[in-house]
Design a protein around this nucleic acid. Structure first.
Lengths: 183, 183
DNA sequence: ATAAAACTTGACCAATCGGTCTATTTTTAC
DNA sequence: GTAAAAATAGACCGATTGGTCAAGTTTTAT
């Protein structure tokens, strides 16, 4: 399926990674999809907020799927390194233009609707739980705490790699994965 | 001194922490300071970009000073914990509304002017160098690498604590400071 | 076949955006 | 004291913002 609604959501998801909530205009999305304004308000009666909310969920789930693919069937350390490689690839392929799809909105989410805050929260939590489950299945002790810490490090490294236009921050995390897993 | 220019800069710095670059309007700043438009364009001929650039530098330096105060005269582990407490206090006092002053802009900085990107880069680098110098003075080996890693963790924890409205992410970093310093 | 529901279309709206401009007031320098 | 410079003031500008709406088209159900 490739409905108008889906194309609007994935276009919005793509744009908010680059410019965030306030930087992404309704007309930008409309122009990219080639759809008039009325269609958007038919599918999203709540307007921009409804669209962005779904875009966050869509972007977050897409990303989680990519991470899941990288982890699958690998030992803990190896899988986590592959996950970092996904992040590095994302940054390089977009020439450092694509932020973490959630961070791009989350940093200013407190001035937005409750629904959007919840969407950010939900996706972040999903990533974390997914990572914890992955570690648990590999027999790592204290999987919840370690997943949280790894996830924190990766998030910081992503932000800094983008800001400095240097994937070194992400690359460096590989060295610390073992330190955390063994702690 | 408390000049019009300074008040404009610190108001802009305050607002971009809450809403980011695109979310902060020139008129918001003007309204808060109680100054007409002409004054702003007198002090900042480059308009919004010039103002935001100085706001980033100002906000970043203010923050660095606060961190420096927390670290001063303390052993490495103790000082870093105090630094985390500063971040926690910032989040709680603003009811999770204030993001890291640089992150708030940096996540979308790639769609802004080179000058603004450079300002973000400069402040981030300053924090990192400061932390490395602090560790070095305390005889920590590999101070550059460890400062970078601690800084990455703290940045991630700040973003996640804000997004989840839960300072636990920051609080948890205290447990890992020793792990990194001893690694 | 036909009525209802779903969807598309684009003109239109008030409000706000960042920015320009000229006029006036205040401060500084000599 | 007076001229120049700095700063304040706010009306005004075109462009864009998110959003509404009435009219038309297509799809679905019966």
């Amino acid at each position: 399926m490739n409905t108008t609604k889906e194309r609007l959501v994935s276009s919005a998801a793509k744009l908010i990674r680059k410019k965030g909530y306030f930087g992404t205009g309704i007309s930008d999305v409309l122009a990219e999809v080639g759809v008039p304004k009325g269609s958007l308000y038919h599918h999203f009666p709540d307007g921009k907020d409804g669209l962005i909310r779904e875009a966050i969920l869509h972007g977050g789930e897409t990303q989680m799927y990519k991470y899941g693919e990288a982890l699958r069937g690998k030992a803990a350390n190896e899988g986590l390194c592959a996950m970092i490689d996904v992040m590095i690839k994302d940054l390089l392929e977009s020439d450092y233009q694509d932020a973490c799809p959630i961070t791009a909105v989350a940093v200013a989410a407190n001035s937005m609707t409750k629904e959007i805050q919840d969407a950010c929260h939900q996706i972040f939590k999903g990533w974390q739980d997914n990572l914890a489950g992955y570690l648990e299945r590999r027999g790592v002790s204290g999987s919840t705490d370690k997943a949280r810490q790894l996830y924190t490090m990766f998030e910081g490294a992503f932000v800094l790699s983008q800001a400095h236009r240097d994937v070194m921050y992400l690359e460096n995390q590989k060295k610390f994965i073992g330190v955390i897993l063994d702690s």
